[in-house]
Computed example of a mutant assay.
Amino acid sequence: MLPERSEVTWGTTHLAYDIRRSARRSTVSIAIDPDHGLVVTAPEATPIARPPASGAREFVSGESFLYLGRQLRLRLLPEQDPRPLALRGGWLELPLPRGLPPEHRSAYARAALLDWYKRRAAERLPAWAAPWAQKLGVTFRRLLVTDQAKRWGSCSRGVLRLNWRIVQAPRALIDYVLAHELAHLIHDHHGREFWATLGRAMPDHEARKARLGELGPALLW
Rank of each mutant, 00 (worst) to 15 (best):
R200P: 01
M1D: 15
G99V: 04
W10P: 00
D188P: 06
D204A: 14
P131I: 10
A172I: 00
T146C: 12
D175C: 05
V8N: 09
E63P: 12
L92N: 10
S64I: 07
L212W: 07
S29H: 11
K150E: 05
H14I: 14
V39A: 06
L77E: 15
V177P: 09
Y67E: 08
I186L: 14
A111D: 13
L87H: 10
A130L: 14
M1A: 12
D18A: 08
D204E: 12
L215K: 01
R98Y: 08
D81Y: 04
A149D: 11
A218I: 00
T41F: 00
E63V: 11
W132P: 01
E214L: 10
G62W: 04
A42D: 09
R110I: 00
G158Q: 06
I166R: 06
F59N: 03
G69H: 00
L185K: 08
M202P: 11
A112H: 05
R211M: 12
G153K: 01
H190T: 06
I48N: 00
A86V: 14
L66K: 07
G137P: 14
R25D: 06
A172L: 11
L185I: 05
L76S: 00
D188N: 09
D18V: 12
A127E: 09
H14L: 13
L96D: 09
H187Y: 09
A107T: 13
R50I: 13
P170R: 06
Y67I: 13
T146P: 03
P51S: 09
L198M: 04
V138N: 06
A196Q: 15
A42W: 08
N163K: 02
H190Q: 01
D204P: 02
D33P: 01
A129Y: 05
G37P: 04
E58N: 05
V40C: 09
K135V: 04
R5F: 09
R24Q: 14
L220P: 03
T146R: 15
P52E: 08
P95V: 03
D81R: 15
V145C: 07
L212C: 03
L160R: 08
Y17L: 12
R88Q: 11
W164N: 08
I32C: 03
R157E: 14
D175A: 06
A129W: 01
A53R: 09
R165M: 06
A107P: 00
L76C: 07
E103S: 14
L74F: 04
A210H: 05
F65P: 04
S106R: 13
L100F: 02
P170D: 08
F194H: 02
D175Q: 06
Y17F: 15
G191V: 10
E58G: 13
P43A: 04
A107K: 12
R110D: 07
L219H: 01
R88M: 03
A127S: 10
R5C: 14
W91C: 07
L136M: 11
V145L: 00
A218S: 15
T13E: 14
W132L: 05
P95W: 03
P102C: 02
Y176C: 05
S156T: 02
G99P: 11
P126L: 03
P126S: 12
R105I: 10
P101Q: 08
W116E: 04
D188I: 00
L136F: 08
L219C: 06
D175W: 04
L94F: 00
L178I: 12
A129C: 09
W221K: 00
Y67Q: 12
E206D: 07
P78F: 03
R124Y: 08
H187E: 01
V167E: 10
V145E: 04
